[in-house]
Amino acid sequence: MTAVAGGVSLSELEARLFPIVERYRGREGAAIPLLADVQKELGYVAEEAVEYVGSELGIPPAELFGVATFYAMFRFQPQGKYVVRLCRGTACHVQGSARVAEQLERTLGVKDGGTTEDLIFTLQYVACLGCCSLAPVMLVNDEVHGRLTPEKAVAVLEELRKKSVPEVSR
């Protein structure tokens, strides 16, 4: 059996996606929540997954890819344990989020959309998190960190890295 998506075999992939397929069978216009559920299950939208759900539901995979690539929410690579969403909205920009971005890129060694090799962090720039009065802001998974400086942002990540290193090497 060959591993396909993130070390998951094809049959396992299908078993995991089957309940999702059943949920959307016969539902019109459900491409976005369908893909969102696939991403939730696998951590990203894997090519094999799109082909499988597409063939099950009778939607051409190209159509699903067309939808998935249109929206910023969908990812096509495995994501880090912590997804760092740095706000690059206007208020954050005016308050210096570009400096924070540069510092994060230096610290993590990745650019916008990149994931560190150890799969701990994914860095993403997002348009606006709506916390403008706390600018600059970043969202790490579901936690908001406001009034950032380059140093403060790095400190948050170092803390998380410390927490996850023993777990990864285990």
Binding site: A91, A127, C128, G130
Partner: peptide
């Protein structure tokens, strides 16, 4: 609400 800098709807 997509305008960066607007958060009243949220």
């Amino acid at each position: 609400e997509g305008d960066p800098g607007a958060f009243m709807d949220r």
